[in-house]
Each structure stands twice: as structure tokens, then as C-alpha cells.
Amino acid sequence: MTFLTDPYIVFFVRWLHVMSGIMWIGLLWYFNFVQIPSMPKIPDAEKPAITKVIAPTALFWFRWAALSTIIWGLIQSWQLGYIWDALSLGFQTKSASHMSIGFGMWMGLIMAFNVWFIIWPNQQKVLGLVACPAEEKPKAARMALLASRFNTMLSIPMSYAMVAVHLR
């Protein structure tokens, strides 16, 4: 087991966590800053290029990157021995850096929950990947949009809390 906390393995896990996080938040920002604002400007006849081709592929990498980020991050915090103290916001050891990373971890966990249990099920309905009555589609699209916006909002303090811990 000591092999798993070898400094190089710890570094390697951090690298996997950061790469997964770039894939996840990069695609989240692509959806919010590029795809969603562009949809009204695309003629209806050309919209299937987004909804049938690009969005399903982007969503595939988006949701698996979210899961990968969470798993490597939790492994990392376990390797460094602060997983429980960080998840309890540093109150066990009165550590500001554990509180900081703990805030980031909780925001990340909430975001990953949104991806898998709100955004993805609703996007499947919107994109026609699962059967859904036409009248339910606007509600599903709205839920997916709000959860995606909420995640964009949380990505700002989440990344701050994650990175700021290294300042202390």
C-alpha cells in the first residue's frame, strides 16, 4: 500500500485529476460560452449538425471527464491523508488549507452530481436519445440549461478553492 502514496504516484494521480478537470470544465465552458449562445443563430435546417453529431460527442467526453476528475481527486486526497478532514471542511484539524480544498471538493461533487443526474438525463430527452413526449422537451431543456449554468457559476469558486490551497 505504501507504493500508492509514493511521491511519484501522488504526482501522477494529480496530473490525471488536472487533465480530467481540464476536459470537464473546458467542455462545460464550451457549452455555456459557445454552443448554447450560438444555437439561436443557426438555421433550423443546420441545427442537427449540433444536436445529432457535436453535442452527443461533447456530452460523452463531458460526463466521463466529470467522473474521472472526481475519482482521481478523491484518490489524491486519500493519498495525501486529508480526505475526511477536507470533506468536514477542516474542522477536525483546524486547517485553513483543508477547509479551502474541502469547499472545492464539495462544489466539485455537487457539480458532478448535476452532470450525471440532472444534465445528462435531461439532455438525453432533448437530443432524442431516449423516448420523450414532445411537450416535455422544453422543460427538460430548461432543467439541463439551468444545471449547466449553475455548474458554470460553481466552477469559478471551485477552481479558486482548489488552486488557492497551494498558496498556504
Binding site: N32, G90, M99, S100, L146, R149, F150
Partner: peptide, 30 residues
């Protein structure tokens, strides 16, 4: 006026506000 979360600009501003609040909590708790 829509809920601020429905606009991208609103969610960015709220995100920055939450960042400052989180930073102040962490900075002055311990």
C-alpha cells in the same frame, strides 16, 4: 427580468461573488 442564473453574465457575477465569500470564510475562520 430573468432569474440571474438564466443568464451567463449573471452566473459569472454570482460565481465571483461566491468566490470572494468562500475566500473570506477560509481566510478568517482559523
Amino acid at each position: 427580468m430573468n432569474n440571474p442564473l438564466q443568464t451567463l453574465q449573471g452566473s459569472i457575477i454570482l460565481g465571483i461573488v461566491i468566490t470572494v465569500i468562500v475566500d473570506l470564510i477560509v481566510r478568517y475562520t482559523f
